[in-house]
């Protein structure tokens, strides 16, 4: 997918040879890039410039502490309170709340909609993220009407905070090869002795880990946070998993 990796700084002119050209598709700019008409493309953050010639798109990968919602992100939101038509949710502390309509759940009608208490965690998709507007969330695919794994999070488990870059790497389709994160596979595989758990990774830097056994939740949560904090590679992650499984008995 990504072919070239170049570090850019905010405001720096981008080398025209890096900008992908495609005969059919229009050029698509992702996070961290801004188009200044007529033809300037300027980075707004410091990070790695990544281009995808096949899709004719380019964006900047960066690791920050502040989550800025963008459309189609999967997030772990926390219900703040309910109003007449929607729930107000927090995506990150001390930021403007996101709205989640009461009817944006699978098979929800006025009578069957889920009643969520303040503080409840919800796995949702960002359906609308415009500048200067509160983001909107949904827990249902608008086309098919299916939940696709989204919805209120129930069952025993705990949420852990990780950095935004790490959450993004966890969410990659091939996180081991491209993101260099194999810690979840290792925990469920032979290094971790086949722990049974489920996760919900939010792009807003929160990961929910669920399991019947609290010990498993603690092991998985610590493994994720340590991997993120120390920036471990695959070999380091393997050692960490073995150590944690031995430590928490």
């Amino acid at each position: 997918m990504a072919t070239k990796h170049h570090v850019v700084l905010p405001g720096e002119p981008i080398d025209p040879s890096l900008i992908p050209t495609h005969p059919k598709h229009p050029l698509r700019l992702g996070p961290g890039l801004r188009h200044i008409p007529p033809e300037d493309i300027v980075p707004t953050v410091a990070g790695q410039l990544i281009t995808n010639p096949a899709k004719n798109s380019m964006w900047i990968e960066y690791n920050s502490n502040r989550y800025i919602p963008s459309q189609n992100d999967l997030v772990l939101a926390q219900i703040l309170r309910s109003t007449s038509d929607f729930y107000l949710c927090s995506l990150s502390p001390h930021t403007a709340p996101a709205t989640l309509p009461h009817l944006a759940f699978e098979a929800a009608t006025k009578k069957t909609r889920p009643q969520l208490a303040p503080g409840q965690l919800v796995y949702a998709r960002v359906s609308l993220a415009n500048k200067h507007m509160d983001p909107e969330l949904e827990c249902v695919h608008p086309g098919t009407g299916k939940a696709d794994g989204l919805g209120p999070i129930a069952g025993p488990g705990c949420a852990f905070d990780v950095s935004l870059g790490f959450a993004r790497r966890l969410l990659m389709a091939r996180s081991r090869e491209e993101g260099g994160v194999g810690v979840l596979e290792m925990l469920g595989g032979e290094e971790g002795g086949g722990l049974a758990f489920e996760t919900a990774v939010g792009r807003n830097g929160r990961v929910w880990v669920g399991s019947e056994s609290p010990k498993t939740v603690v092991i998985v949560g610590r493994a994720l946070q340590e991997t993120d904090r120390l920036g471990l590679g695959l070999e380091g992650q393997r050692k960490l998993v073995k150590r944690l499984v031995k430590e928490v008995k």
């Binding site: 926390q78 927090s90 503080g119 409840q120 705990c158 949420a159 609290p214």
Partner: peptide
Amino acid sequence: HEPSLNEKQFVTQALQE
């Protein structure tokens, strides 16, 4: 900022063990 219900429940439940 308050912790979520899930976190609160988990912390108390895990502490019992």
